[in-house]
């Protein structure tokens, strides 16, 4: 399978990355090189093989459903580019 420039634009949109025209063209070539490389996986007979979900045979650890941390809004917003009274500020999303 290979991708065309329209697919690259669609994927860039899904990934939320703005892509200029020349960049989209270059990415098409690079992505096709990588997709060409991974194509060989189709050769492997995986009939009856379960997809891996965990490399270590273990049950997921569970903890008590209790509050173990919190009460530190100033820490949470400390690194944000724009905040107001411990809220994150974003461009208007509701008209």
């Amino acid at each position: 399978m290979s991708v065309d420039i329209a697919t690259v634009r669609r994927v860039a949109r899904l990934a939320r990355i703005a892509v200029a025209d020349d960049e989209a063209e270059r990415m098409t070539g690079e992505l096709n090189a990588i997709l060409g490389f991974v194509e060989q996986l189709g050769e492997v007979d995986v009939t009856g093989v379960e997809p891996m979900t965990s490399v270590t045979p273990m049950d997921m650890k569970k903890r008590v459903d209790a509050v173990t941390d919190g009460g530190k809004p100033a820490d949470i917003v400390a690194n944000a580019p724009a905040t107001d009274e411990n809220f994150f500020l974003v461009p208007k999303v509701i008209e």
């Binding site: 399978m1 860039a12 990415m27 991974v38 995986v46 379960e50 997809p51 891996m52």
Partner: peptide, 25 residues
């Protein structure tokens, strides 16, 4: 971009699921 593509609708089985099966092997 590669990751978004292989997880996108219609390609998940061909790429991601196949790769995770190969990983089992």
């Amino acid at each position: 971009m590669i990751g978004t593509y292989v997880l996108s609708a219609g390609y998940y089985d061909a790429y991601y699921l196949q790769a995770q099966k190969v990983r089992t092997q």
